[in-house]
Amino acid sequence: MILQQLADGLVLGSIIALGAIGLTLTYAILRFANFAHGEFVTFGAYLALLALGQFQVLSTTTFGPLSFGWPLLASLAAAILATAGLALLLDRLLFARLGRAGVAIAVVMGSFGAALALRNLLFFAFGGEPQYYSRAIQIALPLLPRSVLGGVRATPDQLAVLGVTALLVIAMHLFLSRATLGRAMRAVAHNPQLATVTGIDVAAVVRWTWIIGAGLAAVAGVFAGLTVQIRPTMGLDLLLPLFAAVILGGIGSPFGAVLGGLIVGIAESLAVPLVGAEYRAAVAFLLLILILLVRPTGLFGERG
């Protein structure tokens, strides 16, 4: 049983990690806790669902044992673009203006209002019923026999989610450590004044932060839809684990956000047999309080 819980936690954790990378970047570079980030996840999931309806006409073949094929990948791309566009639009209409006013908490409040509006508009447009990308039932493959600590089973889709997440995390790492833009992002996160003085185009960095953060959130949304289901509250339910992951990893550390996401996901999964599945979200909260008490800067953070 314990191995199976770890595996389930890993899948959940990789979805949290993808969302948390974007949240930690916007937190560090734009300097506010974005409560609308969870809605980017939901928006991405629904947009992919909408696009899938169009693309499915072209092809219905799936990749081997997976439940999806090219149409879902095309829909994923569409969702990434649309969610990035939504983030840029929100920044232009709301966050940038509130940020200029100088009251730090006004931006947080604005993100709160935007989250409420977005979530309910999605509910209005799509209804509250859970939806799925595919109705096909997937057989979980045995990866380890039952004799080894209860064994491990996983669906091909879950394995795909893990694999793609790993690739994205490696790509993010290379981007932030090697690419000029990535290094500029780290510089702005570290010290915006100094970054401006050295000639970094802060406006461009802010723009790309939104694009990357919202894009990864959309991927997280599609993966959550693929492995669980698509609901208007899926982003809201993820928000607390996302914040716990970001703070656990240390604000501004993408690597920390990934590790934090995996820890939160596994902790939630391990807690299920102890306290029951219904208290899952409370686990993230307890972790959060614990980190704030013991080490508020997180595992890899520099600022308090």
């Binding site: 409040m109 209002g113 989250a115 977005l118 979530r119 209005f124």
Partner: peptide, 21 residues
């Protein structure tokens, strides 16, 4: 009704943002 109520809540969110702005 459920969807109309959602629209009402979305309205509060938008109003909150407008007042802040």
């Amino acid at each position: 009704k459920a969807q109309a109520a959602a629209l009402q809540v979305a309205g509060i969110g938008v109003a909150l943002c407008l007042v802040l702005l």
